[in-house]
Design a binder for these strands. Structure first.
Lengths: 113, 113
DNA sequence: GGAATAGTTAGGGATATGGCTAAACATCAA
DNA sequence: TTGATGTTTAGCCATATCCCTAACTATTCC
């Protein structure tokens, strides 16, 4: 299996689970403790913690323990790698459309070629 | 495990693998047959086909068989679900920053509150 | 101190993922 | 019609994922 997972892999894989996306959505409103974060989810805490671990591993959330309470927060720029890759992809696609357009224009100008 | 995978799940999970991202990058330049698509990858064809199947399943590529050749193409708007979710997330985050800003401004105006 | 609260560790189970080889089709070309 | 070409099917293996319960540790509060 994939031995060298890049940041991008981790980020996209982290986003590929509805629980984790919901966690991120919740954290967008502000930091929360693990228990508060977990409250809406019908899931045992250890399972929930695994999701947090993956998000932290992907660099998308940070967490800090104070006393017995661990507080989680969204990392600014958490989505940048994903957005950047998608933007690059969009450019590739548009470049291709431009080439196609140029090709069609050329054809119209010079139908016998 | 997740029984009801949404489109978003499929799209993000599809993007979470470097082989599949490379396939998409390659297809951005134009449609290709399976064998041509596969050429740069050091992987047995059946393994490669699994990746194609996942991309098609996620609605990101389409394919058509003519004779013995299957040609794959990027689906226009393949990335829309991913980009939309990320954009929504960005708005949430900015709304939160705005609230924080308003709070700080209020504090500065009325320090005793 | 003793009880409640917040997380963590350990271990297990079902299914999914990402890879392989070998063999089967299907079609085109000579 | 025979052989080469382009997939496709079948079946297997190792590891990862996502979920669970039970038991443990560390704090805080009365």
């Amino acid at each position: 299996m994939a031995k060298h997972q890049t940041d991008l892999d981790h980020v996209f894989l982290a986003l590929g689970d509805p629980t984790r996306r919901a966690i991120l959505e919740r954290l967008a409103a502000g930091p929360l403790s693990v228990t508060e974060l977990a409250r809406p989810f019908a899931m045992a805490l250890p399972s929930f913690m695994e999701h947090l671990k993956k998000l932290e591993n992907a660099g998308m959330i940070s967490s800090d323990k104070d006393g017995r309470v661990r507080t989680c927060a969204l990392v600014p720029g958490a989505f940048a790698p994903a957005r950047d890759w998608l933007a690059a992809q969009k450019h590739l696609w548009e470049a291709r459309l431009d080439r196609f357009d140029a090709f069609v224009t050329q054809l119209a100008k010079d139908p016998n070629e």
